[in-house]
Each structure stands twice: as C-alpha cells, then as structure tokens.
Amino acid sequence: MPAPRFPRVALFDLDGTLLDSAPDMVATANRMLAARGLPPVDAAMLRQHVSRGARAMVGAVFPGLDEAGRDALVPEFLQVYREELGRHSVLFDGIARMLEALEADGARWGIITNKAEYLARDVVAGLAWEQRCAVLVGGDTYAEKKPHPLPLLEAAKQLGVEPGDCVYVGDDERDVVAARAAGMRSIAVTWGYRLDGDDPETWQADAMATQPHALLEPAAWPATNPIPLDA
C-alpha cells in the first residue's frame, strides 16, 4: 500500500490558525488607550475577538461607543496596527514544521483571510513566505469574504484546481461554513481565537485538530475526493 499523502492543496486562515497575531492587536489597542489616558486592555479578553475583525476589536476595547463611534476609530486602529504588525506576533508552535512537511510532499498551500489584503501581504512578506505561499486572498480581494465561499472558490481557480481537491483549515465557524459552501473539506483547529461559548464540535468540520503537530500526519487530513456543493 502506498504511504498516505497530504492533500495536493491546503488552504489556511491566517490569524488564529497559522499566526498568533493577538500580541500585535493588544499592542495596538494599548497605544490607542494610552493616547486617551486610559488603562491597558485585558489581553485575554481581546484575544477572543481577534478573528472577528477590526470593528469587533474596537468595540471590545471601547465598549461604551455606539456603532458610529466604533466605525470612526477603525481607520486609526488599522493605521496603528500596521505599525505594530509583526513586532509581537509569532507562528503557533508546530506550524513551521507542518508547512515544511506539506512542501516536502509536493503539496501547495495558500492563505485565505478576512484581514485586508494589504495587511495580509505585509504579514506574508515579514515571514518571508512570498515564494512559498501559492495563493493569498484577503477580505477585500473580492466582493465577498468568509463565510461566503467566493474567496475559496477564486483561490482554487487561481491554482488551477477543483475545490474538491482542497482542504481549508481555520479556527472560526465561518471558515467551516465557507469551505462547505465551496465544496471543500475542512479542518477546525482549536488553538485559535474563540468567544466564550463557541464550540468547534458543533461546526461540523470534516476533521478537528487540537494542536499544529497533529497536522504533521497525513492521516489527520480529510480525503479530498471531489464533493458536491453544500454536501
């Protein structure tokens, strides 16, 4: 029997899946708070909101603001965040080895994130992944973002593969929903950022992983036989 192989294409969420970017977000929030004479943010609280985007984080840092007030602070948050980008974040333990194992097996991998594309490209450049990451899709690259399947479908198209040839890996229910709608298999990872009460067991992913080291084994990845949309 031939040895099991990894999927030919592995696609990943970024924040909370490949990268522990919460420290950059905390530094950003604390700069904004300090500028207003306010005490630092509760880092553990903010980590829960990292996968929810800039508006959610601004809302968590400044809970007394109404929607208009939160929206008004988003540009400042993004500007400060870009200055802090990569200064404090690190890959989750085991991610580097997992990507190397995929590459050694001849698989390609890419990133589909809801982070703005220009910020995602800054992250990829800072990690020296420009030549390794086969496709990069940001939250503003197309007209829709996750949980809509469009970014996943377009990534597969860029790579010249069918969606059923891909496995999408993420730490948020939106990742699993998008994968299912795109006709891709999915892996829900539990080391990322979740709000209290979020239960990955209910997301109906094709597989789950509790640590990156688990994904070093090809058997941990779901089979990528073509599957129908909304299967």
Score class of each variant (00 low, 15 high):
Ala3Val: 10
Ala3Asp: 14
Leu11Val: 08
Leu11Glu: 06
Asp13Glu: 00
Leu14Arg: 07
Leu14Pro: 00
Thr17Trp: 05
Leu18Lys: 06
Ser21Cys: 13
Ala22Tyr: 00
Pro23Arg: 01
Asp24Leu: 07
Met25Val: 14
Thr28Glu: 08
Arg31Phe: 01
Met32Tyr: 02
Leu33Gln: 05
Ala34Tyr: 02
Ala34Phe: 05
Arg36Cys: 11
Arg36Lys: 14
Leu38Pro: 00
Pro40Lys: 01
Met45Ala: 13
Ser51Trp: 02
Ser51Arg: 04
Ala56Ser: 12
Gly64Asp: 15
Glu67Tyr: 11
Glu67His: 14
Arg70Gly: 13
Arg70Leu: 12
Val74Lys: 04
Pro75Met: 08
Pro75Asp: 08
Phe77Thr: 02
Val80Tyr: 01
Arg82Glu: 15
Glu84Tyr: 02
Arg87Asp: 03
Arg87Ala: 10
Arg87Ile: 03
His88Leu: 05
His88Val: 02
Ser89Glu: 08
Phe92His: 12
Asp93His: 10
Asp93Asn: 10
Ala96Tyr: 09
Leu99Gly: 00
Arg108Leu: 12
Gly110Trp: 01
Gly110Cys: 09
Gly110Arg: 06
Lys115Trp: 07
Glu117Cys: 08
Leu119Asn: 07
Ala120Arg: 00
Val123Arg: 01
Val123Trp: 02
Ala125Asn: 10
Ala125Phe: 09
Ala128Thr: 13
Trp129Thr: 04
Glu130Phe: 09
Arg132Ser: 14
Cys133Ala: 15
Gly139Gln: 00
Gly139Cys: 02
Thr141Glu: 00
Glu144Gln: 15
Lys146His: 07
His148Tyr: 13
His148Gln: 13
Leu150Cys: 08
Pro151Asn: 03
Ala155Cys: 11
Glu162Phe: 09
Tyr168Cys: 08
Tyr168Gln: 06
Val169Asp: 05
Val169Lys: 07
Asp171Ala: 02
Asp172Asn: 13
Val176Gln: 02
Ala182Met: 04
Met184Gly: 03
Met184Cys: 12
Arg185Met: 06
Arg185Asp: 05
Ser186Ile: 04
Val189Glu: 03
Gly192Phe: 03
Gly192Trp: 05
Leu195Gln: 13
Gly197Val: 05
Asp198Ala: 15
Thr202Lys: 14
Trp203Ser: 09
Trp203Glu: 07
Gln204Tyr: 11
Gln211Cys: 14
Trp221Phe: 12
Pro222Glu: 04
Ala223Ile: 13
Pro228Ile: 10
Pro228His: 12
